[in-house]
């Protein structure tokens, strides 16, 4: 039951995620600024960090835009690795931990010498998987930045949004196709790496 609830963000369609977070990041009407500034009053106790009393425009400016893209992506994406790691954890025999207990290992050592290496096939694949899939991230950004254009511009333009903008808004298919091709070559290398790793895990 609890696991199901934790999976909910992962079920929300990405275009909805983009729109929802775009709404939440708004300067005056967004809930994030309301919580931070009106309820928690962060500017009063984080003033030394350079947090000003003005609510920030989250969707504009250099580091903020990236944060505004990364946080929803993580929020949407994390239940899947969680599910996989959970399945992996349940697959680790309990005997190992008992043996470690007898040897006098503490919790951290148990994690570092048993859990972590045994989960390696899972997290390594998830890592590469995540890398590959998030290079192709498009929906969230495209929906989040409203005002017609739908693109963050110089502050947070992703590869995919750049390709899309070049091809279908400036109608400059050449640039778009060239970028796609380059990206595909790079991804081929990564995918090849991933596949070798995957095969190695499968066999050994």
């Amino acid at each position: 039951m609890l696991r199901g609830l934790f999976l909910f963000p992962w079920i929300v369609p990405t275009f909805v995620v983009g729109m929802l977070w775009g709404f939440m990041w708004q300067k005056e009407t967004g809930i994030i600024n309301i919580i931070l500034y009106d309820i928690l009053q962060v500017h009063t106790w984080l003033g030394w960090l350079g947090v000003t009393a003005d609510k920030p425009f989250w969707l504009m400016g250099d580091p903020k835009t990236l944060a505004a893209i990364i946080i929803p992506t993580v929020w949407r994406g994390w239940p899947h690795p969680m599910l996989m790691l959970l399945a992996g954890l349940q697959g680790i025999p309990h005997d190992y931990y008992e043996a470690a207990d007898i040897d006098g290992a503490n919790g951290w050592r148990k994690f570092w010498y048993i859990t972590f290496p045994l989960l390696k096939p899972v997290w390594a694949i998830l890592l590469l998987f995540g890398l590959i899939f998030n290079v192709y991230a498009f929906n969230i950004v495209y929906m989040m930045f409203g005002n017609g254009a739908g693109f963050p511009g110089e502050w947070g333009d992703l590869l995919m949004t750049n390709i899309f903008r070049n091809s279908f808004q400036r109608w400059d298919f050449g640039t778009g196709a060239a970028l796609s091709f380059l990206l595909m070559v790079v991804m081929m290398v990564i995918v090849n790496f991933w596949y070798k790793f995957y095969k190695g895990v499968e066999e050994g």
Binding site: F133, S180, V191
Partner: peptide, 12 residues
């Protein structure tokens, strides 16, 4: 491996 190359590439 095709599964690893999402379709946005093939859009054009």
């Amino acid at each position: 491996s095709t599964q690893m190359i999402p379709g946005v590439m093939m859009l054009i």
